[in-house]
Design a protein around this nucleic acid. Sequence first.
DNA 1: TTAATAGTGTCTGTAAGACACTATACG
DNA 2: CGTATAGTGTCTTACAGACACTATTAA
Lengths: 242, 242
Amino acid sequence: MSPTLDYDPHEFPPFAVTVDLVVFTIRDERLHVVLVERGSEPFAGRSALPGGFVRPDEGIDAAARRELAEETGLDLGRDAATLTQLATYGDPDRDPRMRVVSVAHVALVADLPDPRGGSDATAAELVPVDTALRRRLAFDHRRILRDGLDRVRDQLEYLSIATRFCPPEFTLGDLRAVYDAVWDVELDPANFRRKILASGIVTPVAGARATPSASGGRPAQRYRATSTALAPIEPPFRRPTA
Amino acid sequence: MSPTLDYDPHEFPPFAVTVDLVVFTIRDERLHVVLVERGSEPFAGRSALPGGFVRPDEGIDAAARRELAEETGLDLGRDAATLTQLATYGDPDRDPRMRVVSVAHVALVADLPDPRGGSDATAAELVPVDTALRRRLAFDHRRILRDGLDRVRDQLEYLSIATRFCPPEFTLGDLRAVYDAVWDVELDPANFRRKILASGIVTPVAGARATPSASGGRPAQRYRATSTALAPIEPPFRRPTA
DNA sequence: TTAATAGTGTCTGTAAGACACTATACG
DNA sequence: CGTATAGTGTCTTACAGACACTATTAA
């Protein structure tokens, strides 16, 4: 805030503030993002990120949680770490109607029962990210999605966010599948195991073993995230080059 | 943006949008931040980060550049990389007057001739960051400063931002002094040289050697940033533990 | 049995940290 | 000469990647 105001605070310019959400999950071994179909102009009929206006007495992340619940039926609960702020997009012409500044967020969720349409009957769908990036999205949502994807890929290296894509208990194979999907690689199971266990971000569940998948295989030890909060991966788990 | 609006766009809630700036530089081997003194309520007389209202037809980073120039006389020019968005702060009660959402930025500058008061005669000063963090700052500026500091410390590991604190030509000793100041460590000159040169973020200036400092010593090779854009440091330059 | 996944062991190359040593300036 | 900084070389340790090998399940 400027100590010597350029504008009287009661004559401030007319801004609208919104939130947009990049909601990632993993489905069929691939990274997906939640898109909604716009029902009204501008960009009616086009795919868009879920989001909406921040209410006058509502915090910004509260607005993000509320909009996500309203449009997709997803409840992130009180868990602070699955929803993080990405960046703010405020080009003067990003919305043809008026000046809108949007605070974008990234949410990571375990695979959903199924994305249902919002309480207001808007269509919500789960789309593979590469498909979504090839679509013509409303507003500057393609750029926001791109930025969100970059962020998740980066954070996978140094933060324990991978467990957010998993249910409370998971195997190291499940966790590796997250890395494989987000980075589009195939990590060596042996080296993955060594690095993840050394980082301490997961703790084995005493006695719990996973039933082998349909294709057979030895049952795997079950793990839980060591902490409910995000933890640094130390040393960082670097993404394979090329 | 919600496809089914909770609010008619022409009845949007009354928000003001501002920018705040965390401007870092290095002075006397220590990291400093630019603070201004507030001339009016609320928080009159208290130190604050420079910033101000975004104008109706102005982009957000354009507003940040303009406010910085107005309040401290610093011109970042067209260089995109010295000014980066940090995060957005929008608690409903962060400004007692009205609902204000502020987009905070971080700027890195080479040591200034001297921070002059703004064109509107507001006092601007350069304060060591640890001192600034102990002060009672206006609004939530202490948290913003804290977040900005964390960001710069992190980015020093994997982005070539250190050169932004230096004049166009510098020695490896100068660059190491940046790391020492921001991380509050004393890096080994030999290992620092090896890692920085291996990363390729700097290029030697043919024939140019620095005159030894007052205390003597062999003249050092001069370098320039290899690219005007920010480049990743590969492999990352990890901060010493503890 | 085979196929598939879980999990262990080991070798090799790269790179970080510690630090000795040389080079070139000022006084 | 001593002192201070620039710059090189080298040793040790840690860890990542590659990959061989064993373990335990389903079909």
